[in-house]
Design a protein around this nucleic acid. Structure first.
Lengths: 216, 216
DNA sequence: GACAAATGCGAGCGGTCGCTCGCATTCTGG
DNA sequence: CCAGAATGCGAGCGACCGCTCGCATTTGTC
C-alpha cells in the first residue's frame, strides 16, 4: 500500500462554493453572539441557526455537530489573535520603562478581548468542550511562556519556578481586569487605568530597578 | 378582614420531622457537589438526587423546583459566611499595619472559598437563576460597602467615586486570587502569598503611610 | 395497635435539544 | 442547456431534562 494518503484521515475534501464560505462565516458570527449571551451549553444550535437567519439543517451542512462550531470559532479567534495582536508580547517592548511596557502589552490585549467577548466566554465557560479547552490551554501556555521569558530576562538569577508563579499571577491579574471591564462597561477607562496601576505596582519592586544586560 | 395573615403568603407551614431535615441538608450537600462539578445548568435534578442516594420524587418532596435548590443552597452559604467569617472585614483590623490587615482579611476569605467551591460557582456561573444572583449581588454590594468604608477611613479626602473604583479593584483582585488557587491546587500556599503581595503592593502607595485619625 | 402525616419510590409526562432526512432550489463545469 | 454537486429547508426523531403522581413505607401521637 503506497503512501497515497499519509495525512491521517484528510479532514474534509468537501468542496465549497463562495456562498458556502459566507454561510459558514455567518454561522460562526452568529455562534459567537449566542455563545456570548448564553454560554456554550446554553446556546442551542437552533438559536444559532435562527440568529444567522438559516434553518437548522443548513447549519449542519457546514458543521457536523455543536462542538465543531465551538472548535472552529475558537480556532478563528486564536488565529485572529495571533495575526493581530500576537506581537504585543514580543521582545520589542522589553527595553521600555516598566510603565510604558505595561501600556504596550495591556492595551492591545484588552482591546482584543473587549471586541471579541466570545474569546473570554469560551476560555472560561465551565461547559466548553474539551477540544476547545485544549486549544485554549495550549494558547494559554504559550502566552505564559512568553511572559516567563520576558520576566526571565529581567531576573536571570531567580529560579524558574518562582518566575512561573509570577507569570501566572500576572495573567490572573489581567483576567481580573477583563472581568472588571466587563462588569463596569461604563467607566472602562477608569478600570483600564486601575489594571495598569495594579500590574505596575506588582511588578515594579520585582523588575523595576533591574539593570538589563546590554544589547545582545 | 383582621390581620390574621400579615406575612405575605407564609412560605410553607409544612411540618417536617428530623429525618426530613436531614434529607434536605443531604440534598443540599449533594447539590453543592453537583453544581461545583457541572455548573447550575449542567446539574440535573436526577443527578443531584442520585448523588444524595434518593429518588427524584424524594428530592421534590423538599424543594419545589431546581431553582429553589440553588436558592436554598445560596442562602445557606451566605448564612454560613456571615456567621463564620463576616467579621473578617470588620473594623477590628483597621488599625493593624497594612500587611497584617491583608493577612487578617484575606486568609479567612480564602479559607471559606476553598472549602465551599459551590459559592464561587453559583456566584459567577453564567446560568445561575436570577433570584440567587440577586442575593449574591446584594452580598457582593455589602462586601464592597465594607471595603469602601475601610478605605474611606484611610482616605477621607478622596472622592467617593475613586474609592469605589479601588474597592471594586480590590475585590476583583481577590477573585483573581481565588481562580489562581483553584487552578494551581498544588502550590496553593505560593499563590496565597502572591495574592497578598499583589494586594499589599497595590494598596501600600494608597493607604500605607496615611496617618489614621486618633481613636474615636 | 390505629390512624394520619411525613417520607420514599420510580415510571413516565411534556418539553427542549442536538441532530437527521427527504426533498426543493441554486450554482458550476462542460 | 443539462447533469450533478452544493446549498437550503423544516418537520420530526431519539435522548434527556425538570418535574408529577399514584402508591408503598415509616414515623409520631393517642
Amino acid at each position: 500500500m503506497p503512501d497515497q494518503e499519509l495525512q491521517p484521515a484528510a479532514p474534509k475534501p468537501r468542496r465549497r462554493q463562495a456562498r458556502g464560505e459566507r454561510r459558514a462565516a455567518q454561522l460562526l458570527d452568529a455562534a459567537a453572539t449566542v455563545f456570548t449571551q448564553a454560554g456554550y451549553a446554553g446556546a442551542s444550535t437552533n438559536a444559532i441557526a435562527r440568529e444567522a437567519g438559516v434553518s437548522p439543517g443548513t447549519l449542519y451542512q457546514f458543521f457536523p455537530n455543536k462542538e465543531a462550531i465551538a472548535v472552529e470559532l475558537g480556532g478563528r479567534l486564536l488565529e485572529q489573535w495571533r495575526t493581530s495582536y500576537g506581537e504585543a508580547l514580543s521582545a520589542e517592548n522589553i527595553r521600555l520603562p516598566l510603565s510604558e511596557m505595561v501600556d504596550a502589552v495591556v492595551d492591545p490585549l484588552l482591546e482584543f478581548n473587549v471586541q471579541n467577548p466570545a474569546f473570554h466566554v469560551l476560555m472560561h465557560g465551565p461547559d466548553t468542550p474539551g477540544q476547545v479547552t485544549d486549544a485554549f490551554e495550549a494558547f494559554h501556555g504559550a502566552v505564559l511562556q512568553r511572559i516567563e521569558e520576558l520576566l526571565a530576562l529581567y531576573l536571570p538569577d531567580t529560579p524558574r519556578s518562582e518566575i512561573t508563579i509570577v507569570a501566572n499571577t500576572v495573567l490572573g491579574l489581567f483576567k481580573a481586569g477583563l472581568d472588571l471591564l466587563a462588569v463596569h462597561q461604563d467607566e472602562q477607562e477608569a478600570y483600564r487605568v486601575e489594571l495598569k496601576r495594579v500590574l505596575f505596582r506588582y511588578l515594579d519592586p520585582v523588575i523595576g530597578d533591574c539593570v538589563l544586560p546590554d544589547q545582545a
